[in-house]
Design a protein around this nucleic acid. Structure first.
Length: 274
DNA sequence: AGTCAAACCTGGGCGC
DNA sequence: TGCGCCCAGGTTTGAC
């Protein structure tokens, strides 16, 4: 399940592998992956465009192209990109293939078919709602304890729901939210209006810490995620609560509990988190 | 303003 | 071995 560290890892690898390449042709295997424009226009517009850069915003991968276009891709739960030789066998769940002028394919493979792509004009990206409504990047200077406090302290939703809402903090998903809350010692269903300034400060730090460590270890590989060359990430070995239902807490030994909060499987230590 | 459920999907894990 | 069932999850949408 790609969250910010996984998407960032993919972005860095793709930037090395496809920057400067030209898209010679595109084949769409699953039409619904292409959300905008219609598939014919998508293929036509993208043909012969050069990939100038690869960036990330929240969980979106952004391919900036030579003709003032931008290809925005969201991996959702099981989407991933791979770069491979054009002769190599197609994976069963291949959804879109971009054939590049260097003899390689950029392939989008997505088992559960939730992943989506949009082709946008670079100048209309500010008005494109899914990108426009994203909150600040958690690893940016704009993401401060003061920002979180001001955004959260008058609301009454569970802190977990708050952090999963991409318009407050973009890029966080289920795994890194559980890990950040554990490290900050805050229960996932605490209402945002009950957090003290110190707790907002602690949470700000643990979010940045957890995401940075996630990136350092090239993301978390659970179920399906691998980076562009099929190598798994390594952060799953460092998780403290996510997926640890009934296992002893690393700090106090209390069994980690699992409950549903904000509609998500949520892991926490009932002793260390208050 | 917030909650909840449904929708979109497939594969893995479970019990039988 | 194989069947049926449930669950996982990011995001949007709509009902309440």
């Amino acid at each position: 399940m790609p969250e910010l560290p996984e998407v960032e890892t993919v972005k860095r690898e793709l930037a090395k592998k496809v920057t400067g390449c030209t898209i010679a042709h595109t084949k769409i295997y699953l039409v619904k992956t292409i959300q905008k424009p219609d598939p014919e226009s998508f293929v036509k517009c993208i043909q012969n465009s050069r990939i100038n850069s690869v960036k990330r915003r929240g969980k979106y991968l952004l391919f900036y192209l030579s003709n003032h276009l931008c290809l925005a891709a969201h991996l959702k739960m099981t989407g991933h990109f791979s770069v491979c030789g054009q002769g190599s066998a197609l994976h069963k769940h291949t959804r879109v293939v971009f054939s590049l002028d260097n003899g390689c394919d950029l392939r989008f493979v997505d088992t559960r078919t939730f992943g989506v792509m949009y082709l946008l004009c670079q100048k209309e990206m500010d008005q494109f709602k899914p990108l426009a409504c994203l909150g600040p990047e958690p690893l940016s200077d704009a993401f401060t304890a003061q920002y979180l406090f001001e955004t959260g302290h008058q609301r009454t939703l569970p802190i977990k729901a708050f952090l999963l809402n991409q318009s407050f903090a973009c890029g966080l998903g289920n795994i890194y939210v559980d890990e950040s809350l554990f490290r900050a010692g805050i229960l996932p269903d605490r209402r945002t209006n009950t957090l003290s300034k110190d707790e907002w400060a602690a949470l700000t730090l643990t979010i940045k810490e957890v995401l940075q460590e996630g990136i350092q270890h090239r993301g978390t590989s659970i179920q399906s995620y691998t980076s562009t060359d099929g190598r798994p990430g390594g952060y799953q070995d460092r998780l403290l609560v996510y997926g640890k239902d009934q296992r002893p807490c690393v700090r106090c030994g209390t069994p980690i509990q699992k409950q549903k909060t904000a509609g998500r499987g949520t892991h926490f230590c009932p002793t260390c988190q208050r």
